[in-house]
């Protein structure tokens, strides 16, 4: 690697996680208004001095000989008015709230609150001062918006180290992936330095192991770890397996299905959907807790060489949600 490339990579790594917040637009406009306000107040003060100084100067201003003086006079009037009742902006979207506050002579300041499952990110959840409170013109009213949910983009990584938040596979003794400790794996299986995020549903992570540890070779065992909303989908899929006649088994007290599936998601392999000669995949699937479901798959080729079902069960019995 030459210096230019190395430098570029070092710079990329340094700022890879940096994202501008959606609140930036609000912050920029707030600064802008703050600046305008300072100018206007200064202008107003000058006119006030002129008024105090001499009556003819005041007459000159109102007679309209100086076109710039008229707006300044209005500002002067605004600065002595006081006691605005703060309008209620909770429940408005951010833009409407800003306009409402501005119309009342107040300045809005966006604040980011905790993430909300119920309120969209652009809806005001609270304000300070509260509605009805009396405030001086130009007072900043803090309006709190829920933080945006992080986007979950599908992502595939090949020959990369696991990001620390995703686990420690690949390290000496590492066995954690996506919040699950894979305590047991069949002997000889190596991690392949391949993983995908949010590919099997919005909140899923998947990786695989095989004999060679090379991701150019076929997988031996692949796991998909589902969390969040994806768990509900897995529950539905399991109900479907039951309806198609599969018998549940028990994995550490939870109902699980060890089934053969073909290409079609949610369908058990049968003569119709799995052409002869094409192996179906042995799959063990269960919901560990309301925020965690696991799907373990064994490649047909690998299953021929070991006792596939027994090994899948052993992997499943041994794994633990990370503390």
């Amino acid at each position: 690697m030459n210096a230019e490339e190395a430098l570029k990579e070092a710079m990329s790594a340094q700022v890879a996680d940096v994202q501008a917040t959606p609140a930036l637009g609000g912050a920029v406009r707030r600064r802008h208004r703050g600046r305008i306000l300072r100018f206007r107040t200064a202008g107003a003060a000058l006119v006030m001095v002129a008024i105090a100084g001499a009556v003819p100067a005041y007459l000159a201003v109102t007679s309209g000989s100086d076109p710039t003086a008229a707006p300044a006079t209005r500002e002067a009037a605004a600065t002595v008015r006081s006691g605005i009742a703060v309008p209620d902006v909770v429940g408005m979207d951010a833009k409407a709230a800003r306009r409402t506050l501005e119309a009342a002579g107040l300045v809005s300041q966006y604040k980011m609150g905790p993430r909300s499952d119920t309120t969209p990110a652009n809806i005001v959840v609270s304000q300070d001062p509260a509605a009805g409170a009396e405030a001086e013109p130009g007072t900043e009213v803090a309006i709190t918006l829920p933080a945006a949910r992080p986007e979950r983009e599908p992502q595939e990584a090949i020959n990369q180290e696991l990001p620390p938040d995703l686990g420690d596979l690949g390290e000496e003794g590492g066995h954690r992936f996506a919040g699950v400790d894979f305590v047991y794996l069949p002997e000889g299986l190596k991690w392949t330095h391949w993983f995908v995020r949010n590919t099997f549903g919005k909140t899923s992570d998947s990786t695989m192991w095989n004999d060679s540890g090379k991701n150019t070779d076929a997988y031996g065992i692949q796991v998909i770890v589902y969390s969040g909303d994806a768990v509900d989908k897995i529950s539905e899929r399991m109900t479907g397996y039951g309806k198609q006649g599969a018998e549940p088994i028990d994995i550490r007290g939870k109902e699980a299905y060890l089934v053969s599936v073909g290409e079609a998601v949610g369908e058990l392999a049968n003569d119709e959907n799995t052409p002869p000669g094409e192996g179906s995949t042995r799959t063990l699937i269960w919901v560990v807790n309301p925020d965690l479901a696991i799907e373990l798959m064994m490649s047909p080729d690998y299953a021929k060489r070991i006792d596939g079902d027994a090994e899948l069960k052993k992997v499943a019995e041994a794994l633990r949600p990370a503390e």
Binding site: Q14, V15, A20, L24, G25
Partner: peptide, 18 residues
């Protein structure tokens, strides 16, 4: 301006940090 921010602000922020 909002569109401009959406498209460019992350890149500007990264450049500033560097």
């Amino acid at each position: 301006f909002d569109e401009f921010l959406a498209a460019r602000s992350t890149a500007l922020l990264r450049t500033a940090i560097l």
